[in-house]
Amino acid sequence: MSKVFARQSKRIGWIYVYHDTFPNPVSFKTLHSLVRAFGGFSELDVIILTGVGKSFLSGANISDMLNFDYKDAWEFSALNELLSNTIKQCKAITIAAINGYCFGGANDIALACDMRVAGKDALFGHTGANIGILTGWGGTYLLPKAIGTKKAYELFFSKKRLTAQEALDLNLINRVFDSAHFYSEVNQFAKGCLQRVKKGRALLNAIRAI
């Protein structure tokens, strides 16, 4: 069962996703909760999305998806699009703080955020093809934009897993932080972004429109 916790610290909102099954699979309920959480924090300056435990998020829960038909798959994908649009419409800078495993659709959710930071132990992969599907959460558009078409196809085709350093080298993420002090470093990073860009919102909208 998944739960989404939200907490606010001054102008920074933290959204934590917890699931009692590793590696934090995303269900319909999780997506609805994330939409509500991002919507609720929309007026803050920074929103940080992270996972609880050894995983940021993974894609959908495979046992739930096994019996999906076309209509279920369509709705699941549409709900994620709603989440991506909600993230995009936030007035806050959105940061995906990737604390561990980040597989499948989790990459797409992270790519919907303005920035991505990861702990040294984070692992990335887009292995949907391995289970007979492709990403339905924007990855075929967002991943090539972030790392280039050839590298993106290589990730889909090779089922390769990337370390945080490899993800950084590919520009998939913006920073790598020490896993032991991950959350305090993310907090510092977020505060740094706020100090540097005073006219944050107007500039953010312009950047998102590129």
Partner: peptide, 17 residues
């Protein structure tokens, strides 16, 4: 992408995978 994603759920490879 959403159409293609939903379409894969009509494939035998999705069930097998």
């Amino acid at each position: 992408e959403r159409m293609a994603f939903a379409f894969t759920f009509c494939s035998s490879d999705q069930k097998e995978g």
